[in-house]
């Protein structure tokens, strides 16, 4: 099925709002760690516009998920890359959509297998509610309402601009 373009969701406007929210609020040397794949794009772009020096890393949470026996191992597992010492670092974890909170739980566990960060904050482009774990974003581009049977998918065009699409939930 062709994904519906979520026209009322302006991903670029939400990105600007997220930049404004983060600008004065993240530690100057904080590392930006994006959750594959949408969060990885966000982390790269945010590191260019948020003042300070922000090393960029990426995590794939597939090996830390809690639903292996229900959902299986996804086909395109990416390699976690944290090219800076996690031990003692201030880290801003970055994801495109905050929903149940399970990916973020998995991402935090991933980080801690690389070391003990001094602090971890969470930045997301969109918060759609529906949390199943006690997790909240420190920085958010905007709250959105999405039908329960749909997922929000972030894409990036050739110019590097973001768009949100609504797609049916797989299971």
């Amino acid at each position: 099925m062709k994904p519906t373009l979520a026209t009322q969701l302006d991903a670029e406007a939400m990105f600007s709002a997220l930049v404004d929210a983060m600008r004065a609020a993240v530690p100057e040397q904080a590392a930006f760690v994006g959750v594959y794949s949408g969060g990885a794009w966000l982390a790269e772009r945010l590191a260019q516009v948020i003042p300070g020096h922000h090393p960029v890393g990426f995590v794939d949470v597939s090996f830390y998920r809690d639903d292996l026996s229900r959902a299986g191992l996804k086909a395109n597992v990416r390699t976690t890359q944290l090219p800076f010492p996690v031990e003692g670092a201030d880290i801003v974890l970055i994801d495109d959509v905050l929903f149940t909170g399970r990916s973020i739980r998995a991402a935090i566990n991933t980080l801690f297998d690389y070391g003990r960060p001094r602090s971890v904050q969470l930045a997301v482009l969109a918060d759609r509610g529906g949390r199943e774990l006690p997790i909240a974003a420190d920085h958010c581009g905007g709250d959105v309402t999405v039908p329960a049977d749909e997922m929000l998918e972030l894409t990036r065009d050739a110019a590097g601009h973001f768009q949100f699409h609504r797609v049916p939930r797989a299971r």
């Binding site: 794939d60 597939s62 090996f63 830390y64 998920r65 292996l68 191992l73 086909a75 395109n76 597992v77 990416r78 390699t79 976690t80 890359q81 566990n109 297998d113 690389y114």
Partner: peptide, 24 residues
């Protein structure tokens, strides 16, 4: 190909100080 691609990610796990993931 999927086995080979997945193994690429596990090479990274094996190079870490903590060489274990909670998957199984």
């Amino acid at each position: 190909e999927r086995i080979l691609d997945t193994a690429e990610s596990f090479v990274g796990v094996n190079e870490r100080e903590v060489k274990v993931v909670p998957l199984l």
